[in-house]
Design a protein around this nucleic acid. Structure first.
Lengths: 138, 138
DNA sequence: CTGAACCCTGTAGCAACTACAAGGTCAACA
DNA sequence: TGTTGACCTTGTAGTTGCTACAGGGTTCAG
């Protein structure tokens, strides 16, 4: 009925490389598929859908364990989605924290690049690392 | 002449934990110090300065190998600082790339949180992961 | 003299892959 | 028919920057 894929076909179709697919199987994120008579993995459309779910979750920065939870929720539509929402909130807070850290780095780095000093002697970057309190707000 | 520190004193003084200091020594980032008669590492002020340099570099997001290069430059003030500058630029570009990725994640997540659907059936997050092309610009 | 708080080395774990090595399978082409 | 090349399999080790032991030695205070 539904088309069967080899691991590399599944990979191409869902944008995940085959080694990563095997890794997801090892870690229990993706169920082990049936095997062809030669031992090759055979995937169906449902596996593709699941893998795309995983890829999108990764693109949003969710970790493997978080995605496992989300997959469980997706499999049980009658469950409350409060858990998914709190997971998303928690994750959003982390993302915002990382953004803040990176913005602080960017600000300092922006001030440091474009140094015209010929030698490292008075290089802005080196001086900053060497003695100044580069991240102070004073 | 200059005060000697144990590894934990050095750690407290420079804000790096002792296990990390040993790790930096193993990877060649921090030179192996002299040893006391009991085999304990003995650090001097110079080591503290070097370690603070490393910590600041890490706070700016530089990798270990990059910091090794920067330390080399700091040790040779007569060298051209062009290398430091190009390293900083390259790193800044990476930081900006990561910021862009995280901002995109944040935008999507912001739209997804606060889902009021009682069940996972129509949960915004689950639906997004499940079938929608969450990152499309269409 | 006993216990806490250090120190040492070496190894293993984390996240999320990625990259082999060493072999088996299969389809196409000469 | 042979052989080439692209796939598939498993298992293991590497990546980055630490962190966390285990299993021992040392030092110091009470």
């Amino acid at each position: 009925m539904s088309k069967a894929f080899t691991i590399s076909e599944l990979g191409r179709e869902s944008g995940v490389n085959p080694e990563t697919i095997r890794y997801y199987e090892r870690t229990g994120l993706l169920a082990a598929p049936t095997r062809a008579s030669n031992g090759y993995r055979r995937y169906d459309e449902a596996a593709g859908k699941r893998l795309r779910f995983i890829r999108r979750g990764r693109e949003l920065g969710f970790g493997i364990e978080e995605i496992k939870t989300l997959l469980q929720l997706a499999d049980h539509p009658e469950q409350e989605c409060r858990e998914a929402d709190s997971l998303a909130r928690k994750h959003l807070a982390e993302v915002e924290g990382r953004i803040a850290d990176l913005l602080a780095m960017r600000d300092v780095l922006t001030r440091l690049v474009g140094c015209q000093s010929g030698t490292a002697e008075h290089c802005r970057l080196i001086e900053t690392l060497d003695q100044r309190n580069c991240c102070a707000d004073s």
